[in-house]
Design a protein around this nucleic acid. Sequence first.
DNA 1: AACCAATGCGTTATGAAATAACATAACCCG
DNA 2: CGGGTTATGTTATTTCATAACGCATTGGTT
Lengths: 161, 161
Amino acid sequence: MGVDCHHTESAQPGLEGAALASAVAAAETKCERTRERLTPPRRRVLELLLEADGPMKAYDLIAAYGQDGEPAKPPTVYRALEFLERLGFAHRIESLNAYVPCRMEGTSHRAAFLICECCGTAEEFEPDFAPQFAAAEAAGYAVRTVTLEARGLCPACKGGA
Amino acid sequence: MGVDCHHTESAQPGLEGAALASAVAAAETKCERTRERLTPPRRRVLELLLEADGPMKAYDLIAAYGQDGEPAKPPTVYRALEFLERLGFAHRIESLNAYVPCRMEGTSHRAAFLICECCGTAEEFEPDFAPQFAAAEAAGYAVRTVTLEARGLCPACKGGA
DNA sequence: AACCAATGCGTTATGAAATAACATAACCCG
DNA sequence: CGGGTTATGTTATTTCATAACGCATTGGTT
Ligand SMILES: [Zn+2]
Ligand SMILES: [Zn+2]
Ligand SMILES: [Zn+2]
Ligand SMILES: [Zn+2]
């Protein structure tokens, strides 16, 4: 990923087996409570995101969609991503044109990311937007959503070369 | 721009005449001081950004490039934008795939934007990243750049319908 | 059960955004 | 001038995302 670094992308191992099933089941439960439907394509895309070791591009998801190797059609994946973002199960990282599953517990959080320019991992964290928010409202703005993406080096890549 | 709003995009009127020339001249001066070259395509793209009433898409710039109506070739504009960003004369707004001229005085600032979802304006402001920065470094990250884009309604659009 | 509106899906096609690759030209410095 | 470096012109391609339309499923209503 980085120009002068050859770490493999592994800082955020994807889920497998029971952990994966459990995460999907949790999403299912959450959907039932709000009368939303975790349909097969939505579930499949969520699985792919959860299994991945890092941010996934839309066309990576499209290529990986079919268990038999058959790709999905783009709208299938983009629609699923739209749903997953709306429900808070996934986030789009604007500066990467890529998507990650939500790693935070709380239902209502504002997503923010620490993106490693070396290994490509994107760690979600809970930011404190209070200062920005206050400044914006003082200027007369009504803020609805905030995108925060910090880029740099993760601990692993910072240490070694 | 917004789904239920019909304000015209005018909150950030572009520069014209003397003001435009002055802004371009200031950029030129800054370049000379650092031995960078504000070549014709770079100057032209900067002009277009400064003249615009709001964020410009790359292909808007491409279409508007030639004074005679002739569009530019994409690499011409993308290279110019890369230069302008590097020098701090312009910023890319990730969540819009669009570009704005820098509206801040200081040479070294971290750009952040308040984006109106109604009229489309993007106001640059000087954010206070200290808390996020501290949190990230505490987690072992070496942060290099931060992208912050807040979306909501500007004062004008918030007030009226 | 028959109906209907709302939502989601499959499919085809197209549009929008960005870059690769390579040849040519201008610049800078000694 | 010569030679390295930086910038540009040009063609083509890749990557990312959505429009449009008809069909299927769902869930409630008569
Ligand atoms: Zn999240
Ligand atoms: Zn890393
Ligand atoms: Zn700026
Ligand atoms: Zn507005």
